[in-house]
């Protein structure tokens, strides 16, 4: 008799069991699935599952949608719904954004600690307004959308000003140049950034660093930094890299992890990048040489002049191959360099 009862109940289980799984078990399964998978399939499987998706804020504490790009249909509605379902409990968000979705995020998820924005296209003002209102934010990551506007490449300064409490900051495709510094003496410029007392981890990936010495300045504004990773499409020449490395390590003995543009450069498998590097290395070398000679006196005048000559001949040979934009950029750099002669 016992076995027949058992058999009957097992048959019932297999036919309807999963659809009526107790809510707390379903939550465990859903947590393993993650927000994107829930929203793409599971929540439409049956009424019971849908109710769990809608009314369990615990499921939406970490809204991570790494594969939801702008090309996904309805991405904004999806991101919006996910954050709303968190009912204010959302502590980390990772996904695409624009002005509208950022404003919505700060309304619905005020206790966010970690924010990772990719495909970033929002205005600088909206971004700073929004991140300023996340009192608990300590981890921020931003990668602008491919082909973004110039202002999206100038986020380092405004982000630091809006969020001095950050512990970890990762920015991609940024430009650090003269706009980000103030002149303090004739030949000395300092970053305009306020002190970031808690910042331990700073990553600037694929950033254009026009004045390499700002990387030393960064240690003045981030006294507790022990991870600094900087990569760039243009690698610093060996001697500059070496000099910087030494200066940074002297200034900050606690630095456990340091990478500078060009360090460990082995995977040039990306042909485009390699091409770009070849195009720019002479220009880059010249620029850095000019700036460094002015700022640190590492390279003497004769050397600069030989770089200049090399660059000019390089230009005249390759002129037709150079993109117009790149040439404009070069002239701008040279102009800045010459200003300090």
């Amino acid at each position: 008799m016992a076995s027949s009862r058992c058999c009957r109940c097992r048959c019932e289980q297999t036919s309807t069991g999963w659809a009526t799984l107790p809510r707390d078990i379903l939550v465990i399964v859903f947590l393993k699935l993650g927000p994107r998978e829930i929203m793409r399939g599971a929540e439409f499987a049956c009424k019971h599952w849908r109710r769990a998706a809608l009314y369990e804020p615990e499921l939406w504490r970490n809204v991570e949608m790494p594969k939801v790009g702008k090309w996904c249909r309805g991405w904004r509605a999806m991101v919006r719904a996910a954050v709303e379902r968190g009912a204010g409990q959302c502590v980390s968000f990772s996904g695409p954004c624009d002005n509208l979705s950022l404003l919505h995020l700060v309304e619905c998820a005020p206790s966010l600690r970690s924010l990772d924005l990719f495909d970033f296209v929002a205005s600088k003002h909206v971004l700073t307004e929004v991140i300023m209102r996340f009192d608990l934010l300590e981890d921020l990551e931003i990668s602008p959308e491919y082909d973004c506007s110039y202002q999206s490449t100038k986020l380092f300064l405004p982000v630091c000003q809006a969020c001095p409490q950050l512990k970890r900051l990762v920015l991609a495709d940024q430009e650090l140049n003269y706009d980000d510094t103030v002149q303090i003496h004739d030949n000395e410029r300092k970053l305009k950034v306020p002190v970031m007392p808690r910042l331990r981890y700073l990553e600037l990936s694929y950033c254009e660093i026009i004045i390499p010495t700002v990387l030393v300045d960064i240690l003045d504004i981030c006294p507790r930094l022990n991870f600094l990773h900087v990569s760039s499409y243009l690698s610093f020449p060996h001697e500059i890299r070496h000099g910087l490395d030494e200066k940074i390590r002297i200034k900050c003995p606690e630095m456990t992890d340091l990478t500078l543009p060009g360090d460990g450069l082995t995977d040039d498998s990306d042909e485009g990048a390699e091409d770009y590097n070849r195009h720019c290395s002479v220009k880059d070398y010249c620029d850095t040489a000019v700036y460094l000679s002015k700022n640190c006196g590492w390279i003497d005048e004769n050397e600069i002049n030989s770089y200049r000559r090399a660059l000019r001949s390089y230009f005249s040979i390759r002129e037709q191959n150079f993109s117009h934009q790149l040439q404009l950029k070069f002239e701008k750099h040279l102009h800045y360099g010459l200003m300090y002669q």
């Binding site: 399964v29 859903f30 947590l31 399939g41």
Partner: peptide
């Protein structure tokens, strides 16, 4: 739970129903 999640990952609602015998 992890196994079940892996079984329904990437599936449409109807595929999930079939996989789990709804």
């Amino acid at each position: 739970a992890k196994k079940v999640a892996d079984m329904i990952k990437g599936k449409s609602p109807m595929e999930i129903r079939r996989t789990l015998g709804f």
